[in-house]
Simulated scan of single mutants.
Amino acid sequence: MTQVFVVNSGSSSIKYQLVDLESGTSVMGGLIERIGEPGSFIADHVEGMQIVLDELGEGRDILAVGHRVVHGGSAFAVPTLIDDAVEAEIDRLSELAPLHNPANLLGIRAARAALPGIPHVAVFDTAFHQSLLPAAYTYAIDAELARTHQIRRYGFHGTSHKFVSEEAARVLGKPYAELKMIVLHLGNGASVTAIDGGQSVDTSMGLTPLQGLVMGTRSGDIDPAVVFHLKRHAGLDVDEIDTLLNRKSGLLGLTGMNDMRDVQEAAQQGNADAELALQVWRHRIRHYIGAYYAQLGGLDAVIFTAGIGENNALLRRRALGGLAHLGIRVDDDRNELMSREARVISPDGARVAVLVVPTNEELEIARQTASVV
């Protein structure tokens, strides 16, 4: 048995893939949407999971089921075989990820009920970042309050950062344990991670995925006092501020558009707000590159991944332009080449290699699941 069934459950959706470990390819996959919504013929995740299993068909030898879980808190540093106690801990951690963990649990419970004789494994977005040292994950607030309410940096996109960094080492033909890398996961959600010898040593997202880079609808880094100002002077309550920073900020807040392709097109047509948004987006990326270069004490590679990072040559060049003094350069011809393969886009002999590496979180989840069972 070499196939792992990978499940990524949302509040009203089930995204799934059947991954063959020997070939590293997806045998089949799909997305069930609008579960439980008005007008939908799928009442709940139990029905949705049955539709998925009907699609998979009978007679498949599935090694295990791998579940993406967004928040593992401090409890989960490795992929973990799911039992009732693990389910309960994932549920308890929902207070740290109220939009994600409850939805992940819906898929876990439906799949465990439908496939009771197969091992189920939770793979956590936060797990890769459990190698952060206290100096990197501790916020400078009242220590007892922080301990009581689990307030610290956790980081996210961990499966992507792990997969991409390992793949980059393979492309470079160098030992993973000897490389210092900065991975830029640039999509509608975006994060950057400093990786030293295969260990995450710093990452831009924090207690939640709100901190860090400018994203499609999230503000990223912001002075915490802005929250007080909005409460006192704009009359917004806590929930309204939460919605503002998570759902109405970032590119959307700056331009009215949350898709980078639309923002880029508007900027090219002379839209000043869109051009400013691109400059803010770029400024934040370079801020983190400089900070993580210093934290790592050197740098072997910068890696682009995710929707924008993999597909937008202009923004890759714009993000790294003017960093030649740090040994970071992009070869224009290599950068413009469109490919689904992992590749180097820096010039031969560059002090820091620049790569584009398509992420494959489903394959990483499948591999981590297999490592447990």
Rank of each mutant, 00 (worst) to 15 (best):
D142Q: 01
L132K: 02
G253M: 04
F41N: 14
D259L: 05
S339A: 05
G39R: 06
Y16D: 05
L299M: 10
Q17W: 06
L184V: 01
Q269G: 04
R147W: 05
I32L: 15
F163D: 02
G107H: 10
L21F: 08
F156A: 10
R318M: 15
T138S: 14
L145A: 14
R147I: 01
R318K: 13
T243R: 14
G290M: 06
I32F: 02
S74L: 13
L63R: 15
E167W: 00
L115F: 11
F41R: 14
T138P: 08
S26C: 08
G290N: 09
Y16R: 06
G59P: 10
A88K: 14
L299E: 07
G197Q: 03
T193H: 07
D223L: 02
Q264W: 03
N335P: 08
R343E: 09
P119M: 05
K248G: 01
R92W: 01
R232M: 04
H157P: 13
E89C: 01
G66E: 10
V354N: 10
Q3E: 15
R351P: 12
L133I: 05
G158Q: 12
E341V: 01
M28Y: 00
S191N: 08
D331G: 00
Q130S: 12
L99E: 11
A135R: 03
T2E: 11
L186K: 07
L320Q: 03
Y154C: 07
E58L: 10
V344D: 12
V344I: 15
N271W: 01
G36V: 13
I285A: 02
I14D: 04
V357S: 07
A64C: 12
L106R: 12
D348Q: 10
K174P: 10
A169F: 11
L314R: 13
L296M: 10
L132E: 06
I195V: 15
R284F: 02
L31N: 15
G72Q: 09
I285S: 00
F156I: 14
R92T: 00
G250Q: 03
